[in-house]
C-alpha cells in the first residue's frame, strides 16, 4: 500500500499574525508555524494503515517555501518514510486549484493507492485540496472521515454528516480521503524517530508557474458588531466584577 499524506505548515493558534504593509499577506518573519491540525490526524491514519498491513510506504507531500521543511521533518520523525517538498519561493498559492494541480503534476507518476489530507487548513481554509487532487487524478474521494478501514482493494470510510449523523461509504482504491480532526490519536515522535528522520530523503522539486484564478486582494482584522463590556483590572478585581455581573446583570440566582 503506497500512501501519500498532504501536510501543510500553518500559523499556530497562538501565533501573532502581523500584516505586511501592502496588507495582502502576513509578515512571515513574526509568525510561529506548526503542522496543520487535521493534517496531523491524516498522517496518523496513514501510519496506522501501514502498520496494520505490515507493509507499504508513507510519503509526505508538502508545498511551500524552505521553512516548511520543519513540519516535513516532524512528519518523518513520526514515522513517514520519505518526503517530497514542492518548493515555492515566496509563500503559497492562494488558489486551491493551483495547489491541487501542482500536487497532481508531482504525484501522477507515483501511483499512490491512497492520499490522505486534512479537511481544511487553519490558514486559508478553503477546504478543497484533497478532493480537487482526487478528482484531477481520477481517484475516488471522501471527506470528513472519522474512521477508515481497508477491505481488500477498497476503503470503507465513516463520514461525519451534519446534525450528529454519520455514514459509511465504501469505495475502490485509489482514493483521496480528507480526514476530520479527532479521528484517531496522533502519536508524538520518539527520540529514535527524531534521530532517524535526519537520514530520510526529502526530494525537493521546483514547480512550474501557474496562473491563479483567485487571489487575495487584502487582509484585515474583522470589526465587531456587538457591544462588548470589557471586564478589566487585577485578577481579584476581575473576579469581583464577574461575580457582580453574574448576580446583578445576568441575574444568576
Amino acid at each position: 500500500m503506497k500512501i501519500a499524506v498532504l501536510v501543510k505548515q500553518v500559523p499556530g493558534s497562538e501565533s501573532p499574525l502581523p500584516m505586511v504593509s501592502s496588507q495582502d499577506w502576513l509578515d512571515e518573519s513574526q509568525v510561529a508555524y506548526i503542522m496543520n491540525e487535521s493534517d496531523n490526524y491524516a498522517l496518523e491514519e496513514a501510519l496506522q494503515i501501514r502498520e496494520k498491513n505490515n507493509d507499504g510506504e508513507v510519503v509526505i507531500i508538502s508545498l511551500g517555501p524552505n521553512r516548511i521543511q520543519k513540519v516535513i521533518r516532524e512528519a518523518l520523525s513520526k514515522g513517514a518514510d520519505r518526503a517530497i517538498h514542492i518548493q515555492t519561493d515566496g509563500s503559497y498559492p492562494t488558489d486551491p486549484l493551483v495547489t491541487a494541480s501542482l500536487f497532481s503534476e508531482t504525484l501522477k507518476d507515483e501511483n499512490f493507492d491512497l492520499i490522505f489530507s486534512g479537511l481544511q487548513s487553519d490558514d486559508l481554509g478553503f477546504g478543497q485540496t484533497g478532493v480537487l487532487l482526487g478528482e484531477l487524478l481520477n481517484m475516488s474521494t471522501a471527506t470528513l472521515a472519522m474512521s477508515t478501514e481497508i477491505i481488500d482493494n477498497k476503503i470503507k470510510v465513516k463520514r461525519e454528516l451534519e446534525a450528529g449523523y454519520f455514514q459509511w461509504v465504501t469505495m475502490s482504491l485509489p482514493a483521496s480521503i480528507s480526514v476530520q480532526s479527532g479521528c484517531n490519536t496522533p502519536r508524538y515522535p520518539s527520540l529514535k524517530g527524531i534521530m532517524g528522520a535526519k537520514k530520510k530523503e526529502i526530494n525537493v522539486i521546483t514547480p512550474p508557474v501557474m496562473d491563479q484564478n483567485q487571489s487575495i486582494k487584502k487582509i484585515y482584522a474583522p470589526n465587531s458588531a456587538k457591544e462588548t463590556v470589557m471586564v478589566e483590572g487585577s485578577v481579584d478585581q476581575i473576579v469581583e466584577k464577574l461575580v457582580n455581573i453574574f448576580r446583578n446583570e445576568i441575574k444568576i440566582t
Binding site: P96, L119, V131, L132, T143, L144, N213, Q214
Partner: peptide
C-alpha cells in the same frame, strides 16, 4: 457551505478548472 457542498463542489471546480470561492 454545508457538509455536502464541502464534499462534492470541489469536484466540479476540478472538472471545469474554474475556481470555487468557498465559505
Amino acid at each position: 457551505h454545508s457538509y455536502q457542498v464541502r464534499d462534492y463542489v470541489p469536484k466540479i471546480s476540478a472538472k471545469l478548472m474554474r475556481p470555487f470561492l468557498a465559505d
